[in-house]
């Protein structure tokens, strides 16, 4: 059984459809890249899987369950935005995660934070964007979740911090788990993908094993992305 099964997923805001008949599966132990231009529905898809957006059409199953209390316990979600309050500190976040998540490894989180040179007592408001991203990532990746959903974990951070974040993702996820990662910095990240979902205008444009796509097209995923969406723009103009 697939870990994630999405079938005919539809979502609209008002009268505007942001997802149209989306269907895909994620197998256990795979790192899946969710790629696409701005506004194509990546974040919406991730929020539905994380249980933040009700009112969708179609079917969503995570480990056999629709998004509910159980799926929230097996999904570790990293949103695009910082969800920690400005006055909170890493030590406060560690307490929250320890209180609520049975699969949270506090020692591992503290170890990751130490490696990233993050002061446990420093308020979030005094941290740079990169430090806030690292802090949230450390919390998320310190859970023994079945599915990690990472929405633009590299957005707005410098290249050195991106490398640290990527390494933290690879070092701390378990092989039984799956990762769904969205990014626009494809060339920095594509080396880690097992599978790829390319989205455009709320639909899956291209999907498959990353190596097979690279081999079939003789291009990197970044080049495939540019080709697909450059073509889409040209067709739209015509």
């Amino acid at each position: 059984m697939s870990l994630v099964e999405v079938s005919g997923l539809t979502m609209r805001y008002g009268w505007q459809y942001v997802l149209e008949n989306l269907s895909f599966q994620i197998e256990p132990g795979r790192i899946v890249g969710l790629l696409g231009p701005n506004g194509c529905g990546k974040t919406t898809t991730m929020k539905i899987l994380a249980g933040l957006l009700p009112g969708y059409g179609g079917q969503v199953r995570i480990d056999g369950h629709a998004p509910d209390q159980y799926t929230r316990s097996v999904i570790s979600y990293l949103p695009e935005k910082t969800y920690l309050t400005d006055s909170s500190r890493p030590v406060d976040a560690l307490r929250i995660f320890s209180d609520f998540y049975a699969d949270f490894d506090r020692r591992r989180a503290e170890s990751i934070l130490m490696q990233m040179q993050i002061d446990l007592r420093q308020p979030v408001r005094l941290m740079s964007k990169g430090m806030q991203e690292k802090l949230q990532l450390a919390l998320v990746m310190s859970r023994r979740a079945k599915l990690y959903i990472l929405d633009e974990p590299l957005g707005g951070v410098d290249p050195a911090a991106r490398r640290v974040i990527l390494d933290a993702i690879l070092q701390n996820y378990t092989e039984q788990s799956s990762i769904l990662l969205s990014t626009q910095l494809i060339q920095d990240v594509e080396r880690i993908f097992d599978d790829v979902l390319l989205m455009g205008s709320g639909k899956i444009v291209l999907s498959g094993h990353a190596d097979e796509i690279r081999a079939a097209r003789g291009q990197s995923l970044n080049q495939v992305f540019e080709e697909v969406f450059a073509c889409a723009e040209t067709c739209a103009e015509i």
Partner: peptide, 13 residues
């Protein structure tokens, strides 16, 4: 608000 990303993804009903 943005805190809701944490609150509403907690493993509680």
């Amino acid at each position: 608000s943005r805190e809701g990303y944490l609150t509403q993804t907690l493993p509680v009903s």
